[in-house]
């Protein structure tokens, strides 16, 4: 069997997928095609978008996107077209429905909680007042950097 496969490959002149894709639109339209292409997932690659991938399936799908844009379809309609055929899987950015909200909101929640924790940690220490504050202000405020002050101190020795 392996011999048969090898024979077939060796005998057939190697051939690249002939069609290099349809001609590009101009300016804003092609930008729209590329933008949509970046959001759709290439079915035979590992996580690449159809705009980025050079595979045959990606090229076929980009041609279709170009056609749909030329037909006047909206972005939503084009996305829905691909979802109808490949499922939600085809969208590289999860839509904001149902459980998908988790992936969009949890990072924000974490940031808020973290900010609150830091606020609490920092507020525990009362700001220096009285003598301590005066002492701080009295120091020569060269760069506010104790390292520099220490270097200076050492240089003076």
């Amino acid at each position: 069997m392996t011999a048969l496969v090898l024979a077939l490959f060796v005998s057939a002149t190697p051939h690249a997928p002939q069609q290099a894709g349809s001609a590009l639109h101009d300016g804003a339209r092609e930008a729209r095609v590329q933008g949509l292409g970046k959001l759709l997932r290439c079915p035979m690659c590992q996580g690449l978008s159809i705009a980025d991938s050079g595979s045959s399936a990606a090229r076929a799908q980009m041609d279709r996107v170009r056609e749909l844009v030329a037909e006047g379809k909206t972005d939503d309609e084009i996305r829905a077209y691909f979802v109808a055929r490949y499922g939600e899987w085809a969208l590289l950015e999860p839509s904001a429905h149902g459980m998908n909200w988790l992936v969009w909101l949890l990072p924000v929640v974490l940031l808020l909680v973290g900010a609150l924790v830091i606020g609490w940690l920092v507020r525990r220490a009362p700001p220096p007042h009285g003598d301590e504050a005066a002492a701080l202000r009295a120091k020569p405020p060269l760069s506010g950097d104790p390292y520099l002050d220490a270097v200076r101190a050492e240089l003076r020795k």
Binding site: K38, R41, S49, G87, L92, E93, P94, M99
Partner: peptide, 26 residues
């Protein structure tokens, strides 16, 4: 965030059977 995005498709599929993708745009 990066960990969440990377494992979310797997978690979603494990708990609800729906297959989604989380890719470069996210």
């Amino acid at each position: 965030t990066i960990l969440l995005g990377t494992v979310f498709p797997l978690v979603r599929e494990a708990f609800s059977g729906v297959r989604v993708s989380v890719g470069a745009p996210y």
